[in-house]
Amino acid sequence: MRRLIALTACAVLVSSLSACSIELGGPPTGGPKCPTRIEPTPKGVNGSLLLTAQAVPNAAVVPCLRPLPAGWTFHDLTARKGKARIVLDFGRDTNRAATITLTRTCDVRGATEAFSDVPGVRKYELVHDSKSSYRSDRFYVNSGSCITHHFVLNSSTGAAQVSALTRALGFVDRAVLRRYVHDYSDGRFELDPTPEAS
């Protein structure tokens, strides 16, 4: 009977774990963090950031997170070949309020080109404003990749909340990550395959 109870308890525990296994990806790491230092030697590069960069090998620019403003929390990072997705929550009620996606390409139809503060990257914006909610998309496009910022907030103050979050959404040049891996391995290997290793 004890073993049956233990087995049942395990099954219940594990089944609840399986339903929220994505949650395990969140804290304690907080997702792909922007390097704390770029020159002379990159520092503070975590595994999440490198994995994000590996998802799209041709991405010249990789999304990263700076310390998040109050109310925003990291939900999870999902990275696979060809796509990486970072999800952030806002407050208690708004899950997946912001999604940052790195892909090879994206569809910018309907979006308006805007000023880009990221060198070598074009920016497009698309806002779906309504009285009860705030939805907008931003696309950062370069030749090898596209970074999409998608915001969905259930309040009329969404624009202000997104504005606050924007300062925490960073970009890191792939060359910085390459340098980091090169230095970490003392030159034994690189972030990306060299032509003869492909």
């Binding site: 595994g47 999440s48 395959p193």
Partner: peptide, 11 residues
């Protein structure tokens, strides 16, 4: 552990 995918080799 957050170990990235293999470095330096095409996956």
């Amino acid at each position: 552990l957050q170990r990235p995918r293999p470095f330096g080799v095409e996956i």
